[in-house]
């Protein structure tokens, strides 16, 4: 599978450099990967432009509320007194509380306004690093135990950092072969049908977005990552993006992957690239 991916990559790279009029030299490898990805982004965003001609691209950061007028009015009422407010405050306290060694998160992340740097592909490690992974690595580097990834303190910290970063623009870069393969892994995951119900993410969040599935309307996939972590009234608290991924996998009767598994990190990377250009506006609140 990897070899086909690489073969595919190579032929596509060859094709784009031909298209570019043979001007690009082979040494500028990163520009080629970014160009391939740019093509995907515009195809993806065009899909939603055609599906919802009246919705402005910027508005997809609001998830299902970008396309569902009635639900949006209720949601705007809720956001008057955001249900995640206390959790963001908790996150701030956690963020500022020193570790046993006297250092704190600020030694890793400054003022915490680092949302736009994640997820990123770390070429030295050869893997995608998400914000939550970086939070735990900061802890471990300072002699603290890692936190559990779905909810609780990690979600509160991530919410505080998202809050600090509001208004930053999503700009995930794919600038190496390794990054491109991780991106392609996420892309393959997103479009593959799985589980006993044989459904892909795209089946619900592209094909069926805007329609009712019983009482639920699946949101457009563009903008999925902008507002996490999310306080869901169903959860009664904040949860991370990977918690939500797990839930959507279970609903179609597929076995969920572990939060921060390579599969979900690559999926997050792909979904983030697809949302390039939107604004980070987390944390969010949802049903």
């Amino acid at each position: 599978m990897l070899t086909t991916k690489i073969k595919l990559t190579l032929s596509l790279v060859a094709a784009t450099s031909l298209l570019a009029g043979c001007t690009s030299s082979n040494s500028d490898e990163s520009a080629d990967y970014q160009a391939l990805v740019q093509q995907d982004i515009s195809t993806f965003q065009t899909f939603f432009k055609n599906r919802f001609p009246d919705v402005e691209i910027e508005d997809y950061k609001n998830g299902v509320y970008a396309i569902d007028e009635n639900a949006r009015l209720q949601w705007e009422d809720i956001e008057e007194f955001p249900p995640y407010e206390l959790e963001v405050d908790d996150g701030k306290v956690l963020y500022e509380t020193p570790f046993a060694n006297g250092k704190s998160y600020a030694d890793c992340f400054g003022d915490g306004a680092v949302r736009k740097q994640y997820p990123q592909f770390d070429d030295k490690r050869g893997e995608v690093v998400t914000l939550e992974l970086a939070i735990n690595e900061c802890r471990e580097a300072n002699g603290e135990k890692p936190l559990k990834y779905k909810k609780g303190n990690i979600a509160k910290l991530s919410a505080y950092m998202a809050f600090q970063s509001r208004g930053q623009i999503v700009a995930a870069r794919v600038s190496s072969e390794g990054a491109y393969n991780a991106y392609m892994g996420g892309k393959e995951f997103f479009y593959s049908k799985r589980g006993q119900m044989n459904l892909s993410c795209a089946d619900c969040h592209m094909r069926a977005t805007g329609y009712y599935l019983r009482a639920d309307v699946p949101s457009p996939a563009i903008g999925h990552v902008t507002h996490f972590p999310v306080h869901r009234s169903k959860w009664g608290q904040l949860g991370t993006l990977h918690r939500r991924y797990g839930g959507c996998n279970q609903n179609i009767r597929a076995k969920a992957f572990k939060p921060q598994s390579e599969e979900y990190r690559n999926l997050e990377f792909f979904q983030t690239v697809m949302s390039n250009g939107l604004e980070f506006n987390g944390p969010g609140s949802r049903k």
């Binding site: 006993q196 119900m197 044989n198 459904l199 089946d203 619900c204 094909r207 069926a208």
Partner: peptide
């Protein structure tokens, strides 16, 4: 199709 294969997948 997004309709699950109810028989083939033994649902």
């Amino acid at each position: 199709t997004i309709m699950p294969p109810f028989g083939a997948h033994k649902m």
